[in-house]
Design a binder for these strands. Sequence first.
RNA 1: GUGGCCGUAGCUCAGUUGGUUAGAGCGCCAGGUUGUGGCCCUGGAGGUCGGGGGUUCAAGUCCCCUCGGUCACCCCA
Length: 427
Amino acid sequence: MSEQSPGERVEAFQAPTGTRDVLPPESARFAALIERFGTLARRAGYGLVVSPLFEDPAVFRRSAGEESDIAKDEMYEFADKGGRPLALRPEGTASVVRAFVQHRPVLPWKTWYVTPAFRYERPQAGRYRQHHQLGVEALGSEDADLDVEVIALGARYLGAVGLGNVALKINSMGDGACMPAYREALIGYLATNEARLCDGHRQRWKHNPLRVLDCKNAACKAVTAQAPRLSAFWCKECRAHYDRVRTGLGALGVGFCEDDFLVRGFDYYTRTTFEFAALSLDAAQNVVLGGGRYNGLVEQLGGPHTPGIGFGSGIERVLLAADAEGALADLGRGIDVFVVDVTDGSAARDLTEQLRAAGIGAERAFDQRSMKAQLKLADRSGARVAVIVGADERARGVAMMRDLRGEDRNQTEVPLAELVEALRARR
RNA sequence: GUGGCCGUAGCUCAGUUGGUUAGAGCGCCAGGUUGUGGCCCUGGAGGUCGGGGGUUCAAGUCCCCUCGGUCACCCCA
């Protein structure tokens, strides 16, 4: 039963604010990123983790930090029909760590994931309420060489999708032994220089003093230029770890620069932090891959002390950067052959399936279109070859094989029994 | 959450100081070519002018509200 009264027009629904549909042909690039990343991750011994899109909100709050913006006002929270509080995943790491705590897999546990992520914020260039991330999380080792492996994997991934113009920054956040002292020193310094901070941070610096370090405002930059350096506070162990990371990256030929002010958005980072920025994008949203070590996070979520490191990479951001660099431009549709049937369609029906079964990408037209229309579709499908079957060919058990690309576009007759072989020969 | 700009066909846009049946290019469909795509020619389909209210003899055009988009701040991927 229709609920509309006669003549009433139904509104055209559209995707909610800050979300979008990823459609062909763009979705091919989306898929290519995931495929290439998955291949590299598996090759390095990382296994896929698929976990629920929603969790107890406390999982995300504990992880990102109770005081973080994500925890405070960017989470999609709701209660299900049983009254259970739930939240949509705002980032990738927390869920994986929660799964680790729950299942206690054998260490080291090296995983990768692809997932949507939800944050309630105003959309703008390169930022959505639902975006997509892929990444890795490796738990159970404190070895700096694992940091190197993870960073190298990130670099390899960005290279594999064709991004050349990227810059890697690394830093160390210290640990429980040295970070508190730095924090105190920074707070003391900011307190005496409060008046010179930018408008926003003059009000908010106490809320998260470290954030002032990566403020883009000139006023803040002038202040932080003289601020105490985190690196001067590193304890012996943190310095040794950091040095091993630097050495490792150097040995692998992964270029990087060190940035004392690299402070990432989540509270859980200890020691190594890193970011890859796409230099072809505006600085406000140019981080395409970022992560770091989180040696206290597993305990935060109720597990045993277990060190970990990982990164997340925004698919939309990487795609923006790929656009800017002209990368990933020529992904075909995977159609090798277009079957043109000017009989009753049964030849197209049977031949396309036969070709697909043989591993050949095959497409056809439906609805008994004219031969001219079918060839037009064949042209646009990207196929290299059209296989044409008319009444005459069908009667004789043959097909015309026509070149759609290249210089000489000849056309030859092939017995149906030899079609697959003939098409393969043309590859 | 705050602010700027913008909503006319599937897409990119034009639309004179408010004035008949709202246009173009591209795309789509068909024909030119009774079995041949890309180029060309002809024709066709396709529009709640984002939505609602108001002013007016008359609103795509002016006013208000609203929804959406976009950009920036904030924050982040």
